[in-house]
Design a protein around this nucleic acid. Structure first.
Lengths: 157, 157
DNA sequence: CAACTGTTGAAAGCTATTTCTAATAAGCAA
DNA sequence: TTGCTTATTAGAAATAGCTTTCAACAGTTG
């Protein structure tokens, strides 16, 4: 029953993405389904890098190339389905865009990489105000706070 | 007279950086002076990438290697003299940290790359509050708003 | 000014991402 | 269903930004 619900919801997501893609002359393929599934099943507050995706697919016995992963990610970012976030220096992370209204931001530990998500109305307001004042059309904004978490502070002693 | 003042202020900057470096067993060298000078002479709201620095030095007839540029930039970031900012996808940009109190943020046009700097007390507050709530030690925060500037909006018609 | 040790440039290396291409497979129409 | 059209795939090679290595060099200090 559990798994039926899950499967149903994944199938729904597939249909949504398929029609979105087809409208643009694009196609929903096996690899794209797998990638979408991973994001749908990823808990809030976690993000996936291209490497994460490759690892998750291959350890499940699947097979996927990095070029496919990157192409799918870019495509979904272009369609406005995903967001690229800069959490660590070395690589890019991706997350599904849920609601445009619910912007969230990140608090990152620069030592261990732990990430907290948070919402802050003031930040959202500031981005609206700033784009308005300069006549910009708001596309996205990223607010990332870098610090050292308690655990790392203690272990540094 | 103009140039005397400029030279004087550059020499002052050199002395400040020299003593700061020597305190840590580091040295103020020719290439480091050149790099610092570029940042001092760069107007507010502009940022330099490693490539920019290389270009500026070499077109003035100078010579500098990328390894030296990157080493100098990292050193100054570690010393807290500079800040690394993520303005574009492909490369990192650097700016001098002026006053720690005066945090500023960036509004970037995703089409033409135009950058505006702005301050916003609410954002600063939000970063303090968030780190406090999670027991983090605040290191830095970056708030970057992405949009499309008026010029690009008009030229898209 | 000599010794000590940090710094430099050039080249090699690294790694995330992108490009290229022949083979494959969605989506569409009959 | 079947076949056609064309987007998409895997895999390899290429790219790009950045880092490391190391022998020669040059600030600093006494």
């Amino acid at each position: 029953m559990e798994s039926n619900n899950l499967e149903a919801s994944l199938a729904d997501q597939h249909d949504i993405l398929r029609s979105r893609l087809n409208r643009e002359g694009l196609r929903l393929t096996g690899p794209r389904k797998k990638i979408l599934d991973l994001f749908v099943m990823t808990p809030d507050g976690e993000h996936l890098s291209a490497e994460d995706i490759h690892y998750q697919v291959t350890t499940k016995g699947g097979k996927i190339s990095y070029s496919t992963i990157y192409r799918a990610l870019h495509m979904m970012v272009d369609l406005g389905i995903m967001r690229e976030v800069e959490l660590a220096e070395e690589r890019k992370y991706y997350e599904l865009k849920t609601s445009l209204a619910k912007q969230h931001h990140h608090l990152v530990c620069v030592q261990c990489g732990e990430v907290h998500e948070f919402e802050d109305h003031r930040v959202t307001k500031a981005s609206r105000q700033e784009t308005l004042e300069h006549g910009f059309l708001l596309r996205d904004c990223q607010f990332t706070v870098y610090g050292i978490c308690q655990t790392c502070q203690l272990s540094a002693l």
